[in-house]
């Protein structure tokens, strides 16, 4: 029996490939989670066995991926509208919403339990809270309710280094809170720069991004103010136990560029931005990725130097 409709298959439950499920985990966000968690783990003063360390980072990554899958499940309606997200597995019809939900919940439970078994209850508890915060507090509640969604919701992305630190030490410390704060304060300018050049997308989806609720002028001012607040914090960390001369050098350079970029964003208006297709905003956004990567690499390098008796003040 042949059926002409076999050539244009309707996606049903059970039809997704491995890559489609993997895409649900938001791999690019996962890579940031993995990197910052690894820095938190390695910068901690307590060593861990490589197998335990590998397992911890893997389960933290899986927990981060579970959050991504559950976020995609909840936001399938918005993802269909936004150009940036239309090709995601659910809007493109590769994975059903029910599958994404089941997948996300299973991985969330699995990652928390396994992290607890591999390391300790503190790391598992922070991971569980992170998943809850991102999915329930940010995705389900704040994102569609307040323009400060990014500010508060950014905490979810700031937890991984704390989880890595807790996996090694079994506790929270000033150092891990500092790493948390660095990411927390970095998140708003990073996302608001994105919102500036992805302008129509969020508006059409009905998400209350600052660009829509308070206007683009206000968003530019917010980017400048938050960067002004971030810079002393990032540089100040050089004089704490996770910092040192190398970190200070890196922080001064990166924050110099970041402040310059934020100032330029604040100074220009929409006419200037449209004329060069938001070149400054896009450059700032790219810089923000190097910014975070650079700071955490410096923290890692400082920690590695300390183990040889170098680094520190």
């Amino acid at each position: 029996m042949s059926d002409a409709s076999l050539n244009t298959t309707q996606t049903q439950a059970g039809d997704a490939g491995f890559g489609d499920f993997f895409a649900l985990l938001k791999p690019r966000v996962m890579s940031l989670v993995v990197f910052t968690a690894l820095v938190g783990l390695l910068a901690a003063p307590v060593g861990v066995h490589p197998v335990v360390g590998f397992a911890a980072i893997l389960f933290i990554a899986v927990g981060g991926g579970a959050s991504g899958a559950l976020n995609m499940w909840w936001e399938a309606d918005i993802d269909r509208i936004m150009k940036r997200t239309r090709k995601r597995p659910i809007p493109s019809g590769k994975v059903t919403e029910g599958e994404a939900f089941g997948f996300g919940m299973t991985l969330a439970g699995f990652s928390v339990v396994m992290l607890w078994l591999a390391t300790n209850w503190m790391a598992a508890a922070i991971l569980a809270f992170t998943i809850f915060f991102y999915v329930v507090i940010y995705t389900m509640w704040l994102k569609r309710w307040t323009p400060q969604n990014i500010v508060i919701g950014g905490a979810a992305g700031a937890f991984p280094p704390m989880i890595g630190w807790a996996a090694a030490t079994g506790s929270i410390s000033v150092e891990s809170i500092l790493m948390f704060t660095l990411i927390f304060m970095w998140t708003p300018p990073h996302f608001w720069a994105l919102a500036l050049f992805m302008k129509a997308d969020y508006h059409e989806a009905g998400v209350p991004m600052l660009t829509v609720t308070h206007g683009r002028r206000s968003t530019r001012k917010h980017i400048w103010v938050y960067t002004l607040l971030l810079a002393p914090l990032a540089i100040g960390a050089a004089f704490t136990s996770i910092g040192g001369p190398l970190y200070l050098m890196v922080a001064l350079v990166l924050n110099g560029f970041f402040l310059k970029g934020a100032f330029e964003i604040w100074r220009r208006d929409e006419a200037m931005a449209e004329a060069d297709q938001y070149r400054t905003e896009k450059r700032f956004f790219r810089l923000s990725l190097y910014y975070l990567f650079g700071h955490f690499t410096a923290i890692l390098a400082q920690s590695a130097l300390a183990s040889f008796g170098l680094g520190g003040w």
Partner: peptide, 23 residues
């Protein structure tokens, strides 16, 4: 598609068994 999913899942499960054994 189903083969790729099943193969991927099989490899993940094998890796998990190895990891838990190592742990």
């Amino acid at each position: 598609r189903r083969f790729s999913r099943n193969l991927g899942l099989g490899l993940v499960l094998a890796g998990l068994v190895a990891l838990i054994f190592g742990l």
